[in-house]
Computed example of a mutant assay.
Amino acid sequence: MDVVTIGESMVLFTPDSISSLTFASKFDKTIGGAESNVAIALARLGHQVGWISNLGHDDFGIYIRNMIRGEGVDTSQVKFLEDYPTAVFFKERKMVGEPQVFYYRKNSAASQMTPKDIDESYIAKAKYLHITGITPALSPTCLDTVMHSIKLAKKHGLTIIFDPNIRLKLWSKEEATPVLRDIANKCDIVLPGIDEGELLTGKIEPEAMAREFLQHDTSVVIVKLGKKGAYYATVEESGYVEGIQLEQVVDPIGAGDGFAAGFISGLISGIPISEAVHRANTVASYALTVPGDAEGYPYSHQIDPNYKEVQR
């Protein structure tokens, strides 16, 4: 197993026409969730990845499991709960600008995750653990689950990758900041957006943010800069990698998860950090070109003409 990730996936409803939700009458049904987005993107790039979560024992839960499993992601650690529902969310369609997103995830099955849901032997098989700042915001037990997974990953020598993915609809800045900073300090690689970096470090410039994160267990920091690309830093090297310029952005949601997947893919492939960041920018750019969370993520042959499927 290359990567294990932990988090909630939800059923996503999007109007089939451009309008506010007030007037929308027909919806397309897909799925969305930061961690499963990363898992799907990595699987499309030819990597072995597992996704851990709880789903409601309902039609939506089965739909999500089947969709993610159908992308080549291992879902053997997914549990179905009888008494808690699968979460759903709605996303507006707009001609310009970022669409509004409305979540219905309170008391969802995923919010009931506990450390007991993490199989140590499953974590031990992986090389990388990917986590985000969304899961610890879902409930106190989800926070405990994330911290437990970090402990297990360290015990078994996994590289831990943390995308803050701050969702202030789930908790306040005052609640989120100390928790996410503590998690970041325990992780090997941190992938903040520029606004997230400012929130967690109090710094404005990417270089200063990176220096703050590198004072602890973190060895690599990648600050996402949107269309400008990204800034990367380690103790030994740092630099900027330009973004991929697009004529039109169709839907920005899911691009950050694509960035994380592209970067992790680069790490697995053993390419230099600057090239891994370029791969991250490339995967993110594909996500921007189509509606939906994971629909636009590329396959390996689309981003690397010399790619050959690894026989496992």
Rank of each mutant, 00 (worst) to 15 (best):
G193S: 07
M113L: 10
F259K: 09
S19N: 03
K308N: 13
V283Y: 04
M1G: 10
E309A: 13
S265K: 14
G296R: 13
P206Y: 05
G292K: 03
F80C: 04
S25G: 10
K29V: 00
H57A: 14
S139W: 02
P178M: 01
T218S: 12
V283K: 11
T75H: 14
L214C: 06
P305Y: 09
K224E: 06
K26W: 01
S265A: 10
V277C: 13
A87V: 05
M209G: 10
L170I: 00
E309Q: 11
L170W: 06
H130V: 00
T201S: 13
I273D: 14
M67C: 01
Q302C: 11
G157T: 13
A261H: 08
V241Y: 06
L45A: 10
G229M: 05
W51T: 07
A280I: 00
H278M: 12
S139H: 03
T86R: 08
V221M: 08
T86S: 13
A284S: 15
K125W: 05
G157P: 02
V146H: 06
A255C: 02
F90E: 08
T141H: 12
K151C: 03
I161W: 10
F89Y: 15
I134G: 12
V235K: 15
V190F: 08
I6L: 11
E98R: 06
H47S: 10
H216L: 04
E309K: 14
Q112Y: 04
V249R: 04
F263H: 09
Y63F: 15
E275L: 09
S17G: 09
L180T: 07
L225F: 02
L152C: 06
L55K: 12
S285K: 09
T289A: 05
G61L: 03
Y103G: 12
V38S: 08
A284Y: 09
D58S: 04
E71Y: 03
I118P: 05
G133F: 03
A230E: 07
D16K: 13
S20L: 07
K29M: 06
P291M: 07
K125A: 13
D195C: 00
L143T: 07
A110T: 08
P140I: 00
H156F: 12
L180W: 08
V38W: 12
A109K: 15
G229Q: 02
G239S: 03
I253P: 01
P164G: 12
